[in-house]
């Protein structure tokens, strides 16, 4: 039924850390209203927040598209940015290309992608250097 499908979009501005977390908190609220199981909400929020912060820390701008149906949530984050040259390397814990300023804030410790991987049922990352990155996070509501 179409009434059981929801779609939201959020815009993210590169470098604007003060707004980071807003899409994550909105998604959290929505999932709570839908009575999604707590652990699924927690995992989704961790994965989304990390992906969101990556846009803020590395890209110029991005769009977060959230699609929810009765079975799952799919979050697609599309950014315009430098892209990721070596995704396999970027997945390694401790590897980061974050600036010193970003690291000083406690971000950029090279744990973000690993957190996303742990907290998503399906994670897909595609990237083109010089163009941008697309991250897709999918979590099922029932296992």
């Amino acid at each position: 039924m179409s009434s059981e499908k929801m779609h939201f979009e959020y815009r993210v501005e590169g470098g604007n850390f003060s707004e980071a977390g807003y899409p994550s908190s909105q998604v959290k609220k929505t999932l709570k209203q839908l009575n999604v199981e707590g652990n699924v909400i927690k995992r989704t929020v961790v994965a989304l927040y990390e992906a969101e912060v990556n846009i803020v820390a590395h890209a110029y701008r991005g769009v977060i598209a959230v699609d929810i149906d009765t079975e799952k949530i799919i979050i697609t984050l599309t950014d315009e940015g430098p892209g990721i040259a070596d995704i396999k390397k970027a997945m390694e814990i401790g590897y980061s290309t974050a600036t010193p300023e970003v690291r000083e804030m406690g971000f950029g410790a090279g744990m973000g992608l690993s957190n996303m991987n742990t907290n998503a049922d399906k994670l897909s990352i595609t990237s083109e250097v010089g163009t941008g990155t697309i991250v897709e996070i999918m979590n099922y509501f029932h296992k």
């Binding site: 850390f17 003060s18 980071a20 977390g21 994550s24 908190s25 959290k28 927690k42 929020v45 961790v46 927040y49 990390e50 912060v53 804030m105 406690g106 971000f107 410790a109 744990m111 973000g112 690993s114 957190n115 742990t118 907290n119």
Partner: peptide
């Protein structure tokens, strides 16, 4: 921050020297 995001349990008190707004975003999430 990603360490806390990945490993802190809800209901915890977070001991840190970070003093910016993102700390509250993580605490809330």
């Amino acid at each position: 921050l990603s360490d806390v995001m990945g490993h802190a349990r809800s209901g915890s008190v977070w001991i840190t020297l970070q003093t910016h707004k993102n700390v509250m975003a993580i605490a809330s999430l």
